[in-house]
Amino acid sequence: MFETDALRLLVTVAETGSFTKAALRLSYTQSAVSRRIASLEQQAGGPLFERLPRGVRLNSAGRVLHRHAVDVLGSLSRAEHELAALHAGRGGILRVGAFATANISLMPAALREFKRARPDVEVTAVEGRSSTLMRRLAEGALDLAVVSDYPSGLPPAEGVTTTALLGDELLVALHHGHPLAGAGTVDLRDLRDEVWLQDAPADSPTMLADAWARAGFRPRKIIRIAEWAGKFGYAAAGLGVALVPSLATHAVPAGLVLCRLGDLPPHRTVHIALPAAPVPAASKLRDLLHDAADRTVPTGNQA
Rank of each mutant, 00 (worst) to 15 (best):
F2V: 11
E3C: 12
A6S: 13
R8N: 09
T16I: 10
T16R: 12
S18I: 05
F19K: 13
K21S: 10
R25L: 07
S27K: 15
A32S: 09
A32F: 10
S39Q: 13
P47K: 07
P47N: 06
F49G: 04
E50C: 12
P53R: 05
P53Y: 04
V56I: 02
R57C: 02
N59L: 04
V64H: 14
L65N: 03
L65C: 02
L73P: 05
S75R: 14
A79N: 13
E80R: 11
E80H: 09
A84E: 14
H87T: 13
G89R: 01
G89E: 01
R90D: 12
G91Y: 03
G92D: 02
R95W: 06
G97R: 00
F99V: 05
A102I: 00
N103Y: 09
N103A: 15
L106T: 01
M107L: 13
A110H: 04
L111M: 07
R112A: 14
E113L: 12
K115E: 14
K115G: 14
P119G: 05
D120L: 08
T124H: 14
A125W: 12
V126D: 08
R129F: 13
M134W: 00
M134K: 03
M134T: 03
L137C: 04
A141N: 13
A141P: 10
L142C: 01
L144W: 03
V146C: 00
S148G: 07
S148R: 07
S152Q: 14
P155W: 03
V160W: 00
A164S: 11
L166T: 11
D168F: 04
L174P: 02
G177Q: 08
L180H: 07
G182C: 02
G184Y: 01
G184Q: 00
T185Y: 09
L188K: 04
E194I: 05
L197W: 01
Q198H: 09
D199Q: 11
A200Y: 09
P201Y: 02
D203V: 06
L208A: 06
A209G: 06
G216E: 03
P219W: 00
I225D: 06
E227C: 12
G230W: 04
Y234R: 12
A235F: 05
G238N: 01
A242Y: 01
P245K: 04
A248D: 06
P253E: 02
R260K: 10
D263Y: 08
T269N: 07
H271I: 02
P275R: 00
A277E: 14
K284F: 14
R286M: 09
R286I: 09
R286T: 09
H290Q: 10
A292N: 06
T299S: 15
